[in-house]
């Protein structure tokens, strides 16, 4: 093999190495973007919602107002709550819905007028499921969990 051939082959190999480096670099970036996207998707994942109920002729129905359900959803009059309600019968920090090891729990935060679950007073943290109705002050919310 003459020097010219060897140099030509080395030149091809060098170009291939360059493209390999660039390809690996872009592949790494792609993986990185995918990882970041997956992370954002996970953070944005929806758990379900609270539907505000309205009584029409004493029959509760959806008012068309929804609140997102988060792993820690606090409800009350104070603006620091995840769901702020204007209700003179509600306490500033009234109730808390929390996701604990795969189960949703409802607890009353020593509110003056109490919290109800399906019209039964909540005295200790209770497990709630899809379709339960939570009563806070004069407001009622239906829990809609996403599978």
């Amino acid at each position: 093999m003459t020097n010219e051939t060897a140099l030509f082959l080395l030149r091809l190999a060098g170009s291939a190495a360059l493209l390999l480096f660039l390809g690996t670099l872009f592949y790494t970036l792609l993986q990185d973007v995918r990882g970041a996207t997956a992370q954002i998707e996970a953070a944005r994942r929806s758990y379900g919602r609270l539907v505000l109920l309205e009584e029409i002729d004493a029959v509760p129905g959806s008012s068309g107002k929804f609140y997102p359900l988060m792993p820690l959803t606090s409800i009350g009059r104070s603006p620091t709550n995840s769901i702020r309600i204007e209700d003179t019968f509600a306490s500033a920090e009234h109730a808390l819905i929390a996701l604990r090891s795969g189960t949703w729990w409802l607890e009353d935060r020593q509110s003056r007028n109490g919290t109800s679950l399906n019209d039964m007073p909540v005295t200790e943290p209770l497990i709630i499921t899809d379709g339960d109705v939570v009563g806070i002050g004069s407001h009622k919310f239906r829990i809609e969990l996403e599978p």
């Binding site: 060897a6 140099l7 080395l10 190495a17 390999l20 480096f21 690996t24 790494t28």
Partner: peptide, 23 residues
Amino acid sequence: VERRLLILAGLFLTINTISLSVL
């Protein structure tokens, strides 16, 4: 990831150093 990229960079430099010493 860092090791892989460094090895590829080293590969490119080695090929060119071979060319240079042939030349």
